[in-house]
Lab assay of single mutants.
Amino acid sequence: MKATFQVPSITCNHCVDKIEKFVGEIEGVSFIDVSVEKKSVVVEFDAPATQDLIKEALLDAGQEVV
């Protein structure tokens, strides 16, 4: 499964690193693409990962998800 999250609070590479760390810890996540320019995060994943778990990880990383 693939999901795109709009994350307007992404401003720098530190944000990218933190997002990759938090989302990458979720079992089932196979790909993460964070774009500072587009302020988006694209995640490819399989169970047990879910969109809700990914959104929670983004929030835990200090990001706003819309």
Score class of each variant (00 low, 15 high):
1 M>P: 04
1 M>I: 09
1 M>E: 07
2 K>P: 03
2 K>W: 12
2 K>Q: 09
2 K>I: 12
2 K>G: 05
2 K>A: 07
2 K>L: 10
2 K>M: 09
2 K>S: 12
3 A>P: 04
3 A>V: 15
3 A>D: 05
3 A>K: 06
3 A>H: 09
4 T>I: 12
4 T>A: 06
4 T>S: 07
4 T>E: 10
4 T>W: 13
4 T>K: 09
4 T>V: 14
4 T>D: 05
4 T>L: 09
5 F>L: 04
5 F>R: 00
5 F>D: 03
5 F>S: 02
5 F>A: 03
6 Q>M: 11
6 Q>T: 10
6 Q>E: 09
6 Q>F: 15
6 Q>Y: 15
6 Q>N: 11
7 V>F: 06
7 V>L: 08
7 V>N: 03
7 V>E: 01
7 V>R: 00
7 V>H: 03
8 P>G: 08
8 P>S: 09
8 P>L: 09
8 P>R: 08
8 P>I: 09
8 P>Q: 07
9 S>R: 04
9 S>V: 04
9 S>P: 03
9 S>C: 10
9 S>W: 15
9 S>Q: 06
10 I>D: 03
10 I>W: 09
10 I>N: 02
10 I>G: 04
10 I>M: 07
10 I>A: 04
10 I>S: 03
10 I>Y: 04
10 I>T: 04
10 I>V: 07
11 T>I: 11
11 T>M: 15
11 T>R: 13
11 T>A: 08
11 T>P: 09
11 T>N: 08
11 T>G: 07
12 C>G: 14
12 C>M: 08
12 C>H: 09
12 C>E: 09
12 C>R: 07
12 C>W: 09
13 N>T: 12
13 N>V: 15
13 N>F: 11
13 N>P: 12
13 N>G: 14
14 H>Y: 09
14 H>W: 10
14 H>M: 15
14 H>E: 15
14 H>A: 15
14 H>N: 14
14 H>Q: 15
15 C>Q: 10
15 C>E: 11
15 C>G: 07
15 C>A: 11
15 C>N: 08
16 V>G: 04
16 V>E: 03
16 V>Q: 06
16 V>L: 06
16 V>A: 08
16 V>D: 03
16 V>N: 03
16 V>I: 09
17 D>G: 08
17 D>A: 14
17 D>K: 13
17 D>R: 14
17 D>L: 13
18 K>L: 12
18 K>S: 07
18 K>N: 06
18 K>A: 09
19 I>K: 01
19 I>V: 05
19 I>H: 02
19 I>F: 03
19 I>M: 03
19 I>C: 00
19 I>T: 01
19 I>Y: 02
19 I>A: 00
19 I>D: 02
20 E>R: 15
20 E>S: 12
20 E>Q: 14
20 E>I: 15
20 E>D: 05
20 E>H: 15
20 E>K: 15
20 E>V: 15
21 K>Q: 08
21 K>P: 01
21 K>I: 07
21 K>M: 08
21 K>C: 05
22 F>V: 12
22 F>W: 09
22 F>Q: 06
22 F>K: 08
22 F>N: 05
23 V>I: 11
23 V>S: 01
23 V>H: 03
23 V>Q: 02
23 V>M: 05
23 V>D: 01
23 V>W: 04
24 G>R: 14
24 G>Y: 13
24 G>A: 09
24 G>T: 06
24 G>W: 12
24 G>H: 06
24 G>I: 06
24 G>C: 08
25 E>Y: 10
25 E>F: 07
25 E>K: 14
25 E>N: 13
25 E>W: 08
26 I>T: 01
26 I>V: 13
26 I>D: 02
26 I>G: 01
26 I>R: 01
26 I>Y: 00
26 I>A: 03
26 I>S: 00
26 I>Q: 02
27 E>T: 13
27 E>L: 10
27 E>Y: 08
27 E>Q: 12
27 E>N: 07
27 E>W: 07
27 E>V: 12
28 G>D: 00
28 G>I: 00
28 G>A: 01
28 G>R: 00
28 G>F: 02
28 G>V: 03
28 G>Q: 00
28 G>S: 01
28 G>T: 01
29 V>M: 02
29 V>D: 01
29 V>Y: 03
29 V>R: 00
30 S>C: 08
30 S>D: 04
30 S>L: 12
30 S>V: 13
30 S>Y: 11
30 S>Q: 10
31 F>C: 10
31 F>H: 12
31 F>P: 01
31 F>Q: 08
31 F>R: 13
31 F>G: 07
31 F>L: 09
32 I>V: 11
32 I>Y: 02
32 I>D: 03
32 I>K: 01
32 I>N: 01
32 I>E: 00
32 I>T: 03
33 D>G: 10
33 D>K: 13
33 D>T: 12
33 D>R: 11
33 D>L: 13
33 D>M: 12
34 V>T: 05
34 V>D: 01
34 V>F: 05
34 V>N: 02
34 V>G: 03
34 V>S: 03
35 S>F: 05
35 S>V: 05
35 S>C: 08
36 V>T: 05
36 V>E: 05
36 V>Q: 05
36 V>L: 12
36 V>I: 11
36 V>H: 04
36 V>M: 08
36 V>G: 04
36 V>K: 04
36 V>F: 08
36 V>D: 03
36 V>C: 15
37 E>F: 10
37 E>H: 08
37 E>P: 10
37 E>V: 08
38 K>G: 12
39 K>E: 05
39 K>F: 06
39 K>L: 07
39 K>W: 06
39 K>A: 07
39 K>D: 05
40 S>E: 13
40 S>V: 14
40 S>C: 13
40 S>G: 04
40 S>T: 15
40 S>Y: 14
40 S>R: 12
40 S>P: 03
40 S>A: 08
41 V>M: 02
41 V>F: 03
41 V>G: 01
41 V>I: 07
41 V>Q: 01
42 V>Q: 08
42 V>L: 11
42 V>Y: 15
43 V>W: 01
43 V>P: 00
43 V>M: 01
43 V>I: 06
43 V>S: 00
43 V>K: 01
44 E>S: 09
44 E>N: 10
44 E>Q: 08
44 E>M: 13
44 E>I: 15
45 F>T: 02
45 F>L: 01
45 F>E: 01
45 F>H: 00
45 F>A: 00
45 F>V: 02
45 F>K: 00
46 D>H: 14
46 D>Q: 13
46 D>A: 12
46 D>R: 14
46 D>L: 10
47 A>P: 13
47 A>I: 09
47 A>K: 09
47 A>N: 06
47 A>S: 07
47 A>F: 13
47 A>D: 07
47 A>Y: 12
47 A>T: 09
48 P>I: 02
48 P>N: 03
48 P>A: 03
48 P>C: 04
48 P>G: 02
49 A>M: 01
49 A>P: 00
49 A>L: 01
49 A>T: 03
49 A>F: 02
49 A>S: 02
49 A>C: 05
49 A>I: 00
49 A>Y: 02
50 T>N: 06
50 T>F: 03
50 T>G: 01
50 T>S: 08
50 T>K: 00
50 T>Q: 02
50 T>H: 05
51 Q>V: 15
51 Q>M: 15
51 Q>D: 06
51 Q>P: 12
51 Q>N: 07
51 Q>L: 15
53 L>H: 07
53 L>G: 06
53 L>E: 08
53 L>T: 08
54 I>N: 02
54 I>C: 04
54 I>H: 00
54 I>D: 01
54 I>T: 01
55 K>A: 07
55 K>E: 10
55 K>H: 10
55 K>I: 15
55 K>Y: 14
55 K>C: 10
55 K>V: 15
55 K>L: 14
55 K>R: 14
56 E>I: 13
56 E>W: 10
56 E>L: 13
56 E>R: 14
56 E>N: 14
56 E>M: 14
56 E>G: 11
56 E>V: 10
57 A>G: 05
57 A>N: 02
57 A>I: 04
57 A>E: 00
57 A>L: 03
57 A>D: 03
57 A>M: 04
58 L>P: 00
58 L>V: 03
58 L>C: 04
58 L>N: 00
58 L>T: 01
58 L>F: 04
58 L>E: 04
58 L>Q: 00
59 L>H: 10
59 L>N: 08
59 L>P: 01
59 L>V: 10
59 L>A: 08
60 D>H: 14
60 D>I: 11
60 D>E: 12
60 D>N: 13
60 D>L: 15
60 D>R: 15
60 D>G: 09
60 D>P: 03
60 D>T: 10
60 D>M: 14
61 A>Q: 04
61 A>F: 07
61 A>P: 02
61 A>Y: 05
61 A>N: 04
61 A>H: 04
61 A>V: 05
62 G>H: 05
62 G>S: 06
62 G>L: 14
62 G>N: 06
62 G>R: 04
62 G>I: 14
62 G>E: 06
63 Q>I: 14
63 Q>D: 04
63 Q>T: 06
64 E>M: 12
64 E>L: 12
64 E>P: 06
64 E>R: 12
64 E>S: 11
64 E>A: 08
64 E>F: 13
65 V>N: 05
65 V>S: 06
65 V>C: 15
65 V>R: 05
65 V>Y: 06
65 V>H: 05
65 V>I: 09
65 V>D: 05
65 V>K: 04
66 V>C: 14
66 V>E: 08
66 V>L: 12
66 V>D: 07
66 V>R: 08
66 V>P: 05
